[in-house]
């Protein structure tokens, strides 16, 4: 088991490579037992313009692993919390009452209620990171569009891409400081 000390994991999606195939979403489903009719991971497509002058952006999306997580702030029981070692936001299902404050708090619609009654979302496959494996979505992606890495490590693939590529983040005005980067 790898020791994960004081890292700040984030995710990047290369929107040039991403074709929106949903392999990530399905792999996540089977890896993390996501119930039918619910999604931890999904695909967005944005097309702008007027025929025939159109532009498109396609990307795989999920919880943004915010630095200033409104879901953690809003949780009354501490179920939604920051996992110290990885810096990721996680949900302790033993503490979740299903009050759904976190779902209201999340501007990205990343959370859902499992049929069992507690709230769930992308965990950045922390159980795999601990074993030194890549996340299920990163591993399966046929276009290598997804990269997960430690933002505190300037040599990680993610940090390098952020330094080298044009990038954007989503709903920054919500004050969430997301650790999810879209490379354009």
């Amino acid at each position: 088991m790898q020791s994960l000390t004081k890292r700040r994991f984030g995710m990047g999606v290369d929107t040039v490579a991403c074709v929106g195939c949903s392999a990530c979403a399905i792999a996540c489903k089977t890896e993390n037992d996501v119930p039918q009719g619910h999604t931890r991971r999904w695909v967005n497509q944005r097309v702008e313009g007027r025929f025939p002058h159109l532009t498109m952006m396609v990307w795989s999306d999920s919880c943004q692993q915010c630095d200033d997580s409104p879901c953690v702030d809003a949780c009354p029981t501490g179920a939604s919390h920051v996992h110290e070692a990885t810096g990721t936001t996680q949900v302790d299902r033993n503490k979740c009452t299903g009050c759904k404050a976190c779902i209201a708090a999340c501007p990205y619609g990343a959370r859902y209620v499992r049929p069992e009654g507690y709230v769930d979302k992308c965990t950045l496959c922390i159980h795999r990171l601990k074993r030194g494996e890549r996340t299920a979505c990163e591993e399966v992606c046929p276009t290598k569009a997804i990269v997960v890495g430690d933002l505190n490590d300037s040599r990680s693939e993610l940090s390098r891409r952020i330094a080298a590529r044009h990038h954007r983040r989503q709903k920054v005005e919500a004050g969430t400081n997301p650790r999810f980067y879209l490379f354009t």
């Binding site: 009719g37 999904w42 497509q45 313009g49 007027r50 209201a104 859902y112």
Partner: peptide, 24 residues
């Protein structure tokens, strides 16, 4: 002169899609 924006998503969480509906 208008341009259009078409946004599609494959997200399908009942409490969040098509719009937030957590509290009745």
């Amino acid at each position: 002169n208008t341009t259009f924006t078409e946004l599609t998503t494959t997200r399908m969480n009942p409490h969040v899609d098509p719009g937030l509906h957590i509290w009745g």
